[in-house]
Design a protein around this nucleic acid. Sequence first.
DNA 1: ACTCAATGTAAAATATATATAACATCATGT
DNA 2: ACATGATGTTATATATATTTTACATTGAGT
Lengths: 79, 79
Amino acid sequence: MTNEVRLLRFLAQDMTQAELGRRVGLTRQTIAAIEQGRYSPSLDVAFRIAHLFGKRVDEVFHWQPGGDQGTQTTSSDIS
Amino acid sequence: MTNEVRLLRFLAQDMTQAELGRRVGLTRQTIAAIEQGRYSPSLDVAFRIAHLFGKRVDEVFHWQPGGDQGTQTTSSDIS
DNA sequence: ACTCAATGTAAAATATATATAACATCATGT
DNA sequence: ACATGATGTTATATATATTTTACATTGAGT
């Protein structure tokens, strides 16, 4: 499971992790963990983040059928 | 947060809760809880379920900006 | 050189999702 | 009437997400 949160945050006038967290009701540590793919967020959190950026959930978070094992971060990380 | 899981399950040749659970790697109790909206699943589970039905996550799970409080079940439940 | 904002990270605590086991109801088929 | 499969439901346990607190690093600005 990869995501574009960090990229979208940069595109949104360099919004900070703390600011993003504040807007979606999460701490900056949680934002950092999600960006790094340390765990997959709840569906509710995914919706809140996607909505903030005006995207669909599947545009922000990318999922692959058999891909639960690794801990990638951004989609450009995939080899 | 509402969802169409139960409906999609019926449309899929009356697939049973247990069978759906088996296919996405969840127990039938968890499927029942998700259908009833007792909690919002993890994003990973949402992707697995949506993928099984050939839908996008936002086509299966419906989210409303301010709507975290209630515990609706299906979208036809909304007043 | 100093400060400060942004980020990384980690341990411990809390909240929530999910599993397991058990029992109940209801419908259908025999 | 009985058996069986599908579902509802609940209590307890476990896994995982998220918060809180704390400390370290790095880069920009002064």
